[in-house]
């Protein structure tokens, strides 16, 4: 009964996991992107302290996304990973550096070294994620169900622009997170950064929104044919509205609203890309139905997900609640 809908349900679950990842790890990767702009090591420690209890859980959504793809759409996983071999490996290596930096920077004497590792690792990881996203939208060469392209197929101007866009977007999430979660000079500087980044991110969103339909007819069709045009026009309008709300909130010195608005921007951009690509998991050839795992596998995993995912969300929320409030200058959770 539920069987025919399983691929769609799983596409929804993985889509949600990736969205959660992008927003959650987005803000803590963004802190890394902003690291070089802090005044001194104390400020950097304060910035890091604001995310120390959260980053591990945030990054688990990346594992969930990768493993979820393997669970629900093994053939798509088997095409996407080899196609983006180099950016994927570079991304995980970058995550190694920035991940160990949290503890190494605390316990070791090489603060500067691990600050650099954290900043560079976070930035490179975000850039690679953007590149993978952009290259995926442009499509992967597939023959007889397997990746049939070269090792640098992903390195297109569009994908590189997407990489920069994601880095800017993460920096925006990071800056607004600092506005919400820190006090003192760090929060003040973050507010100034956030204003600048908001503009930059909007420019990137506009560029991608114009570039994709113009270069890919399938996406042009999706957005500009009737009646789709009317149904989908709220997406760009809402984006503009959210950006305006975020801007006003920054001007009025609100603490939480800018972060919420940044998340809104991310989700709208994400929705836009999902609309452009659906039902392809591997554009332009493999759909979610063509790459679905055995129904028995999708169903077995769905049972566990239905039970465990609400629990995960509950205790994740609890951890955010335990570590509520702002981190003061020189303060930490240690």
């Amino acid at each position: 009964m539920i069987e025919p809908h399983l691929p769609l349900i799983w596409a929804g679950i993985i889509g949600t996991a990736v969205a959660l990842y992008v927003v959650l790890d987005g803000f803590d990767l963004g802190i890394g992107v902003l690291f070089p702009f802090a005044k001194d090591d104390n400020e950097r420690s304060q910035m890091m302290a604001s995310i120390a209890p959260f980053w591990d859980g945030n990054e688990t959504w990346l594992v969930m996304g990768g493993v979820g793809l393997l669970v629900a759409f093994p053939p798509a996983y088997a095409v996407i990973m080899p196609a983006f071999y180099l950016p994927v490996i570079v991304m995980v290596l970058a995550l190694v550096f920035r991940g160990v930096a949290f503890e190494f920077r605390e316990v070791g004497g090489h603060k500067t070294l691990w600050s650099i590792a954290f900043a560079a690792g976070s930035t490179v990881a975000g850039f690679c994620q953007g590149v993978i996203l952009g290259a995926l939208i442009q499509g992967i060469r597939v023959e007889r169900g397997a990746f049939a392209g070269g090792p640098f197929d992903w390195a297109t101007p569009f994908a590189l622009v997407c990489g920069l866009g994601v880095v800017a977007g993460y920096a925006l999430l990071g800056a607004t997170w600092l506005v919400m979660k820190t006090e003192g000079p760090v929060a003040e500087r973050a507010r100034a950064h956030a204003r600048l980044l908001l503009v930059v991110v909007l420019v990137f969103m506009a560029v991608v929104s114009i570039w994709t339909p113009l270069s890919i007819p399938r996406i042009f069709e999706r957005w500009f044919s009737l009646p789709n045009f009317f149904y989908l026009s709220p997406v760009p309008l809402l984006t503009a509205l959210t950006a305006y709300v975020g801007w006003r909130a920054l001007e009025k010195n609100r603490d939480t609203a800018p972060f919420v608005a940044s998340i809104g921007l991310f989700l709208l951009g994400y929705a836009g890309l999902a609309i452009s690509c659906f039902p392809y998991l591997v554009p332009p050839s493999l759909t979610i139905w063509q790459t679905a795992a055995a129904p028995a596998s999708q169903a077995f995993m769905l049972i566990g997900t239905a039970i465990l995912l609400p629990l995960i969300l509950a205790y994740t929320a609890y951890v955010y609640w335990v570590f509520r409030g702002k981190v003061k200058p020189g303060g930490s959770y240690h």
Partner: peptide, 11 residues
Amino acid sequence: VGPLAGYEVLS
């Protein structure tokens, strides 16, 4: 193998 790894992540 997918679902077994999936249960590892979730649980």
